[in-house]
């Protein structure tokens, strides 16, 4: 099949920062083309000043997320065919994050909230102590496993309405991460994790409407993790442990 027979696509791309406008490019269609391919074509062949972010191109690094026809997606694993209604594709930066330039957002607030939620492992034991043995079918291990494959792409954060209504809300990814840690028996600061997610913009701000679940490209369920945190945090608060 030649490119000509596949025709061209109209690709509208956000240009500028918070203030800006869409610019339309004509990009030749290719079989199995991804949205990231479109952006790369524009940057390489039509306008080298276009700013965007990617690294792995295979859905591992989580850096290529953008808003495609109104929906947050990982662009390297999104086929144009799947999203291009009537040969038109509109590509914008992720919602809920400051725009640096064109399609590149400032991810700092997203990652900062990961830290705010104490979304990092806190070692418990001295180096000399024995390695903890955790059976794979341990219920807590299962909970952690179900939530652990997050690639930090920010798609859920961009999909979450509560983040846009309440900008200091920690958001699905940070809370999901915290959930994996409270279920990790090796972690040395379970209480610290619970305290972090019980702060004013913490887990209880979630409305449970599952837009994060709907859009997470790796199929995680942050809503479920957050529900788990809510339960633990409420119990801890009632017992006066927070």
């Amino acid at each position: 099949m030649t490119n000509a027979s596949l025709g061209t696509l109209k690709v509208e791309i956000w240009r500028g920062a918070e203030e800006g406008d869409f610019e339309t490019f004509e990009v030749p269609s290719q079989p199995s083309q991804t949205v990231l391919d479109l952006v790369t074509y524009v940057q390489r062949k039509l306008d080298p000043s276009l700013a965007y972010r990617f690294a792995c191109r295979v859905g591992v690094c989580g850096s290529c997320a953008m808003t495609v026809n109104g929906t947050p997606r990982w662009t390297c694993r999104t086929h144009v065919q799947k999203v291009a209604s009537s040969g038109r594709v509109r590509i914008e930066p992720l919602r809920n994050l400051p725009i640096l330039k064109d399609l590149a957002t400032d991810m700092a607030p997203f990652f900062d909230k990961g830290q705010e939620a104490l979304g990092r492992f806190v070692p418990s034991d001295a180096r000399a102590s024995e390695v903890a043995t955790i059976p794979p079918d341990d219920p807590k291990r299962k909970e952690a496993n179900a939530a652990i494959e997050c690639i930090g792409c920010g798609v859920c954060y961009s999909a979450c309405d509560v983040v846009s209504w309440q900008p200091d809300y920690l958001g699905p990814a940070a809370l999901n991460r915290a959930w994996t840690l409270v279920n990790d028996v090796r972690d040395g600061d379970r209480q610290g994790h619970l305290k972090a997610v019980a702060e004013d913009a913490g887990c209880h701000a979630c409305h449970g409407h599952q837009n994060c679940v709907e859009h997470c490209p790796v199929g995680l369920n942050p809503t479920r993790s957050i529900a788990g945190l809510k339960r633990l945090v409420v119990m801890a608060a009632l017992k006066g442990e927070l």
Partner: peptide, 13 residues
């Protein structure tokens, strides 16, 4: 302290 959490608890309760 943790006003939001306590309000959440009161509302669910």
């Amino acid at each position: 302290k943790r006003l939001e959490l306590w309000l959440y608890i009161a509302q669910r309760g």
